[in-house]
Amino acid sequence: MEEKDLVILCIKGNRSAQSELVGSFAPRLLSLIKRYQPKSLSPEDILQEVFIEIFRDLKAYNPEKGVLYTWMKTIAIRLILKTRRLDQSWLKDKTVPIEYSDAIPDLDQILNKMNTDDIMKLIIALPDGYREVFNLVAVEGCSHEECASLLQIAVGTSRSTLSRARQMLKEQYAQMKIY
């Protein structure tokens, strides 16, 4: 069944279609949630809230603007960040020296050599704010302006945080000695 037809049936309240939608996307969204919120919340609870909102706003989905998973992912990220927005204590963390460099050349090569679970472990180990900036900019491909808007921080803070996050990943990678 095509996504468009599945969405129509879900809007009409067809339970089997809704179940199929959940079964198709829940594991990926759960992985996404764990990548953003690994520590403090039950990811299944967040996933449930995500699907409640997805079903509530399903009429707003426009297939011409993108695939369904991208739209669902946007809702999930927004919901995750909304709950995180209240806590910005990580902004005061100055323990890592600031380097205004967008890329550490060898990080991508390191990550490409690693399997996905190990990459997940590395990212999950990042402190909250760093993890979110890294996820948004490095993984999702947001610009620093978009990231700053989503997290309600300054663009410069987004840049410096990404730089710190990359440095942290390299350090953690060295400590874990995965390879």
Partner: peptide, 28 residues
């Protein structure tokens, strides 16, 4: 690595999850 991360799936008990979710799906 981004694509692999984006397509990564976490294992979960789908039946239990659906049972808890079904009653909460909003009616239009």
């Amino acid at each position: 690595w981004r694509d692999r991360l984006d397509q990564n799936e976490s294992p979960m008990d789908m039946g239990m999850f659906w049972n808890s979710l079904e009653s909460k799906i909003p009616v239009q």
